[in-house]
Computed example of a mutant assay.
Amino acid sequence: MSIYQKLLGDSFENLHPKLQERYSFQKDGVFQGKGTMTDIRGARRWMYPFLLLLTRWKFIFPESGKHIPFEIKNVAYKRPDGMEEVKWERMFYFPQVTRRFHAFMTIDPARKVVKDYLGEPHLFYSDLLFTVTSEGGLSISSGSQKLIVGKMEIPIPSMFKGNVEVAEGFDDQLQVYTIEVKITNRLLGNLMTYKGYFTEVDG
């Protein structure tokens, strides 16, 4: 049973069957997909240097574009401490540069949240709340967040948080997975958004 099945419990069965397949990979399991992000929008121009710096941690990036080739790879494994973890690797192939957005997920069964460590090495932490929609899609939103400085985790005040909204689904007509991600901040507005589609491919 995958960490996502454990987290969602009985509601996992209400996901679209293809999303159940996508999120049921267990230890040593891999999901790989290729597709296109039809629209990617970065933050305001004056934030470009800051977001460019974050790319060193394989975190969010400043570029915008349309119809950008995209790859995703999820790998499930057990850490040395026995915790089940899933690594997320997302690659965006802009004409002049490839950007990566990596994350490492475990679950906290007691609080019923996904623990999401963002960047490689870790730079930010966020609680993620997973909900199955009435249409069988997956809705993901962020909770409390922390800045990672060495071994310290510093809580981020609400006004400085990156508010995350993710919608995943499956288009039966086109036979593709769909995704839309929005990362915003109360003070700064849009930090990064992207939406598009992908299909599963063999490794």
Rank of each mutant, 00 (worst) to 15 (best):
T106A: 11
N185P: 07
V201E: 01
I3C: 00
V166F: 02
D202W: 09
K27F: 08
F130G: 00
K115M: 09
D202C: 14
S126Q: 09
L52P: 09
Y23N: 08
P121Y: 06
Q32R: 15
R186I: 14
I183S: 04
G143C: 04
W46E: 12
T106V: 01
V30P: 03
K151Y: 04
V149K: 13
F31I: 15
Y4N: 06
R44W: 14
H122Q: 10
F101L: 12
P49H: 03
I154H: 01
F61I: 10
Y48C: 06
E180L: 09
L188Y: 07
F104V: 07
R22D: 09
L147W: 06
L138H: 00
R186E: 15
T133I: 01
V164C: 10
N14D: 12
I40C: 09
T106D: 03
Y177G: 07
F92T: 06
S144Y: 14
K27C: 11
K151R: 13
M1V: 06
F94L: 10
L8R: 05
K87M: 05
T98D: 15
V181N: 10
K182F: 14
Y177I: 10
S126V: 05
I68D: 01
S144R: 15
A103I: 04
G150W: 08
M37T: 12
E85G: 08
K58T: 15
K146L: 07
D202P: 09
H16E: 05
Y48Q: 07
G119R: 01
I107V: 01
V201C: 03
D10K: 13
S126E: 05
E200K: 14
Y93R: 13
F70W: 07
Y93W: 08
P109W: 05
I68G: 05
G35E: 03
L138M: 08
S24L: 08
S144A: 14
I148A: 00
V113Q: 03
D39C: 15
A43G: 11
R99L: 05
L123A: 07
R44E: 12
H67I: 13
G9K: 00
K27M: 05
M1K: 02
E89V: 14
M37N: 01
I60R: 05
R79K: 13
T55V: 02
G196E: 05
P95G: 02
L19K: 00
T133F: 00
T133H: 03
A43Q: 00
L15G: 04
R45H: 14
Y4S: 00
M47H: 05
E21F: 13
K34E: 11
R111L: 02
